[in-house]
């Protein structure tokens, strides 16, 4: 090979070698593809099997479920994707999410059922909180409504459940105020001032005009406007029986209960 050929025959030879290289390459490639396809098939069937054998664990054990969801996320599969699955499903029988097929719907249904509960909690409490409720409260309320011995659910589950509501429109979404995640069930954007007020109200449960003026260096008018706006949205309750009017976050209503039940 090292010796360079001379004369016209050299051209032929080089054409030959490159053709051989090409054919060899394509065999390699197809072998590779074959192997990958095999691996994928094996993987899919294993995943199927895994999900089937552990369906109960996935439904009942929150840690297991979270790990499972994380594993799926790591390999780039969305367990809840309800797309028509032709892109990554590779034609494994059209329609329905690949996951629904793999898991016999049970995991999907778990999140759908949870989503229904989330919607219920949000609409039950919308009157008192203006459609903005802390994720933790939603979980508490759902857990309280569950019968003894029902499986534990985590905030992570609720986040996923809210995700399943996406096809229904933008009404339900998760936003972060301060450092805490909230579920918003009205299609309403908070402006920065309003978020700042709600964040401040997380500390003591309430804020007042002067508190905002001192801590955020706002003018009286600005503080007043932000508070009035939030009151108008039903996201704050006013207490006029204190020295200065205090504007309370309705989330504190449930929080107090924890204190009562713990002490009492």
């Amino acid at each position: 090979m090292s010796r360079k050929g001379v004369g016209l025959a050299a051209f032929d030879r080089s054409r030959l070698t490159s053709a051989q290289y090409a054919s060899h390459g394509s065999t390699l490639r197809s072998a590779n593809a074959q192997a990958l396809e095999n691996q994928l098939a094996v993987f899919r069937s294993l995943l199927h099997q895994f999900a089937r054998t552990h369906a109960r664990d996935i439904r009942s054990n929150p840690t297991f479920r979270a790990q499972f969801a994380r594993m799926c996320a790591a390999i780039g599969v969305d367990p809840l994707a309800s797309s028509n699955s032709n892109t990554n499903g590779g034609g494994s029988g059209g329609g329905g999410s690949i996951w629904a097929q793999l898991l016999g719907r049970s995991v999907n249904d778990f999140y759908f059922e949870l989503a229904v509960r989330v919607v219920e909690v949000c609409s039950e409490t919308r009157g008192e909180n203006g459609g903005l409720i802390e994720l933790r409260k939603v979980r508490e309320r759902i857990m309280r409504g569950r019968i003894e011995g029902a499986s534990e659910i985590t905030e992570d589950d609720i986040l996923r459940a809210v995700g399943t509501l996406k096809p229904l429109g933008s009404a339900y979404s998760v936003i972060t105020v301060g450092s805490k995640p909230y579920i918003r069930s009205v299609p309403k954007e908070l402006n920065t001032d309003q978020s700042a007020v709600l964040e401040a109200a997380q500390v003591l449960g309430y804020v007042s005009v002067s508190m905002l003026m001192v801590n955020l260096k706002w003018t009286r008018a600005r503080a007043q406007t932000a508070l009035e706006d939030l009151m108008g949205e039903g996201m704050l309750w006013v207490d006029k029986q204190s020295d200065e009017w205090e504007y309370w976050s309705p989330g504190f209503m449930l929080e107090n209960q924890d204190v009562v039940t713990e002490t009492g």
Binding site: R126, G127, E128, G130, Y206, M231, G232, E233, G234, W237, V238, D239, K240, Q241, S242, E246, W248, P250, F252, M253, L254, E255, N256, Q257, V260, G264
Partner: peptide, 23 residues
């Protein structure tokens, strides 16, 4: 045993927002 809203100070002030007031 009083419900949680009983220890929520604004519960004792008439709320101005109609929806909140109804709640």
């Amino acid at each position: 045993s009083f419900p949680p809203e009983y220890s929520f100070p604004p519960f004792f002030t008439r709320q101005t927002n109609l929806t909140t007031h109804h709640a």
